[in-house]
Design a protein around this nucleic acid. Structure first.
Lengths: 217, 217
DNA sequence: TAGATTGTTAATCGATTAACAATC
DNA sequence: TAGATTGTTAATCGATTAACAATC
């Protein structure tokens, strides 16, 4: 029995917003001024009505017969997602995935700025990864307290994930982006977003196994 | 107006199966023999009834008062996902993310085996990445034809994604795991699974912006 | 046996889609 | 103006949750 006090979810819509944003930025770069949901839907293989419903969540209004002003729409989505301000984050786990995420330029576009990397492997501590020196886990508390970093990214092996989360939360982190395949148990007020790649692989595997190949992306 | 010929989706369930699998493997390593949906639900922060509905998709049946036999359940999920057989894949785009995915040991557990890496950057061609030599894109066709590789992983920059997909499809690839933030246009019969990280970041951003912090993972 | 647990059938909830009036 | 497009209200669809009989 789960009591959901306020029913603001709209999760599927939120997941689609970055795709709209990316397309709009491409169109803006091509000097487009307006775009209709018909065009957006065709490009992203969605239904026009769904695009309109999605965009309305950001509060934007369009012009009948013309569509939406692209710069205003970009601004509305970025504001809604909070991506026009910088959010500082720390990353825990300087393995392959952690290193890749650090090197990924795309995050900056979404306002995410990784300011420090931690690992509890002495062999990794002190090494440079994409311009950042790997710090020992003992320094998490001091750094988060000093910089008031809100977000922690967890890219450690599964067995170390809960402990990493505990350390982050104790230090004052309130949002965790969890790339490990374990469910983190966190106190109220701490937000967790799971990004386990095996979910996606499971979907791909099933779609391919299905004799009737429908390519609903 | 979209006509869906057969309505086999169950996507949310399929997304959760890897989490069940991971937990079950942990329990098995701890010498557990049986597990109830009550225990699974508590660990994964789900509802017992949802766990039962999900597991029933794989065809497994449990024993009242006892739960499910762990080895049989693991086997049922792996079979359902096709993860007990090896699937060969090639990867296009030897950048940060591509390199990280190659180094990620987890895929082997899910039966995914990357047999070749491609890139159209001459500076990258010929270099070794996690034991594989980066090949030029011109060799995709020959290799896929020879090895009959079913899956292609796309980790190229956005502007190169559609062309990469076209090359893969022309070579005979029928499943694409797309890590770029663009919607790939593919012919019928080709399956695409999008794995754009910015969707997850969008959800995290909104959850954190929300004054009422509900941590529904 | 008693009672925990499964699995089915029905109810609820939320997301998607359809219909259509309003707009420029 | 005519007609493409928006945005609202209603209908449909699928997923989650609830109720409860069956089981060992």
């Amino acid at each position: 029995m789960k009591v959901n006090p306020c029913k603001v979810s709209k999760l599927p819509t939120i997941r689609r917003l970055p795709a709209y944003l990316h397309l709009l930025q491409t169109l803006r770069a091509e000097a487009w001024k307006f775009v209709s949901t018909t065009v957006i839907a065709e490009t992203l293989e969605l239904e026009p009505i769904q695009v309109r419903k999605d965009l309305s969540l950001t509060g934007i209004v369009g012009k009948p017969r013309v569509g939406y002003a692209i710069p205003a729409l970009i601004d509305a989505i970025e504001t809604y997602l909070g991506w026009n301000a910088t959010t500082e984050a720390i990353l825990v786990g300087a393995g392959h995935l952690g290193t890749a995420l650090l090197g990924y330029k795309g995050f900056a576009q979404h306002g995410l700025h990784v300011v420090a990397v931690f690992d509890n492997d002495p062999a990794k501590v002190g090494q440079k990864v994409h311009g950042l020196t790997v710090l020992p886990m003992e320094q998490v508390a001091e750094l988060v307290a000093r910089l008031q970093t809100p977000v922690g990214i967890i890219t450690v092996p599964p067995h170390a994930a809960q402990e990493a989360a505990d350390t982050l939360i104790a230090a004052g982190i309130t949002g965790i982006w969890n790339f490990s395949p374990v469910t983190l148990h966190v106190p109220e007020g701490v937000v967790v977003q799971n990004e386990d790649l095996s979910s996606g692989l499971a979907v791909l595997s099933r779609k391919m196994a299905d004799p009737a190949r429908h390519n609903h992306q």
